[in-house]
């Protein structure tokens, strides 16, 4: 028992806590924080307008706080904030240790490589999830404060479900980005392609291509669904492959993606020569 604690628990706890702290103290967290705060900013502006000038539209459907929250979750948090935050922060999860030359301090400790990658990955998930939770919950609370809304207590369960699904999304996208950041030289381009080209458009490819996207599994379990109107609605209905997967399949698939990416990043750490030529010699 003592051996397991010394070999796994203490090093893993240290990796997660120290790296989370370092991430939150780093200036590099500012950009992801701005991205994650963007929906909150929109909600704040909307609430201010509502407080000063009253409802912006006469259509009661447009003023329903829950509908607004739903649109915010699907259109901004799920499709924009989560992938972009993963791209910005997840990609550097492991690579920053190589870039900043500090990898050696981790490499020279008797800690299994998979534990180091897992620890750093969990620190990324905790850091970005914290930012996301602050933004999402604040948006929810602000929208709940609109007069006549009974959303705060009534839809709390939905908020909690949104939270864990979005955090799972951050984990899945982040794991893929960590892998891309470790293996590819032009990782940012590769990341943009995977997140905003492949993940966004694979559903329009006939066949089962959509099942090779993270978006498909996240949307399958997300409580809010995007409603396409007009021409977009017709295109979606005709071309998009959108048969949702079950909750179990989706969650297991996303967790498997995370596990596979951690395993492959560990392989790079273990067998790839990441040290480069010495500076001084």
């Amino acid at each position: 028992m003592m051996d397991l604690r010394a070999r796994v628990v203490y090093p893993l706890t240290a990796l997660v806590t120290v790296n989370t702290r370092m991430s939150l103290m780093s200036r590099k967290v500012l950009f992801p924080a701005v991205i994650v705060s963007f929906p909150l900013l929109l909600v704040l502006i909307f609430r201010l307008i509502f407080a000063i000038w009253g409802p912006p539209s006469n259509d009661p459907a447009d003023q329903d706080p829950y509908t607004m929250y739903s649109v915010l979750c699907v259109s901004l948090y799920l499709q924009f904030v989560v992938p972009l935050a993963a791209l910005l922060k997840g990609m550097t999860t492991f690579y920053e240790e190589i870039e900043e030359g500090t990898l050696m301090f981790l490499r020279l400790r008797p800690v299994p490589r998979v534990l180091i990658i897992t620890g750093k990955f969990l620190a990324y998930v905790v850091t970005v999830s914290l930012l996301l939770i602050i933004s999402l919950w604040s948006s929810y609370a602000i929208l709940s404060s609109i007069p006549g809304s009974d959303m705060f207590w009534g839809d709390l369960k939905i908020l909690l479900k949104d939270t864990w699904i979005l955090c799972l999304g951050l984990a899945a996208y982040g794991a893929v980005m960590m892998l891309v950041g470790t293996y590819f030289k032009r990782s940012i381009l590769m990341g943009i392609f995977l997140l905003f080209v492949w993940d966004a458009w694979a559903a329009y490819i006939p066949g089962s291509a959509h099942k090779f996207t993270i978006k498909h599994y996240l949307q399958s379990i997300f409580p809010h669904q995007r409603e396409s109107r007009g021409v977009q609605g017709i295109i979606d209905a005709l071309l998009s492959q959108n048969t949702p997967s079950s909750m179990t399949v989706s969650v297991i698939t996303l967790l498997l993606v995370v596990a596979a990416c951690i395993a492959l990043t560990t392989l790079a750490f273990q067998f790839k020569d990441l040290s480069g030529a010495p500076e001084g010699d």
Binding site: A6, Y10, P11, V18, G101, T102, M104, R109, V111, P278
Partner: peptide, 28 residues
Amino acid sequence: CPDMEKFYERLTGHEFLTYMARLHGLPK
């Protein structure tokens, strides 16, 4: 002891050594 200048600049010296000691399996 490497011949390079790279460190976790935001940690204090004590935090850095504590981190390294915990990676060697010591409780906090």
